[in-house]
Amino acid sequence: MSFLKVLVKNIVAGPSTVAYPFGEPETPAAYRGRVAFDAGACTGCRMCEYVCPAGAIRFDERDDGLHFAVWHNSCANCGHCAHYCPTKAIRLTNDWHMAHLQSEKYALADHAVVPRARCTRCGADIGYGTDAIVRHAYRGVARQTEHLARLCPDCRRAASIKGASL
């Protein structure tokens, strides 16, 4: 008869139902929800595209830069992209309000452009996200050599030889 005790206890304790949808829902901070992408921090390594099990992330190389696209309707919120991203440019927010009408099905995507970086001296193309790489890879670089990081290989060689001759 212990189940009767449980039932009576339940009645006394009252409902434990959360208020949502009539009130605010609570979401844990670590909940793996909608993917957010920070183009400024991306190094263009395309690791997230490679590890994405659902193929939700796509990169497209164009003249104005690297076009990033994630289609949330294909994303399994597994977090591989965030785990493997070297600069934490891609991460999972705790936003889960993604139920939508069919008309918005293909609009549930995020686009971003990772701009090409230019050599600060000659303007040559030196790939993507140099600032991000500098922040991540050259963390303990002396102040004297820091300006070399934003140069193309040719300019860097020239600049460092010039620096050595001084």
């Binding site: 039932l7 339940n10 009645i11 304790a13 009252g14 409902p15 434990s16 139902t17």
Partner: peptide, 9 residues
């Protein structure tokens, strides 16, 4: 029944 199961019902 809902109250006994701690639901609102």
């Amino acid at each position: 029944v809902a109250r006994m199961q701690r639901r609102v019902g």
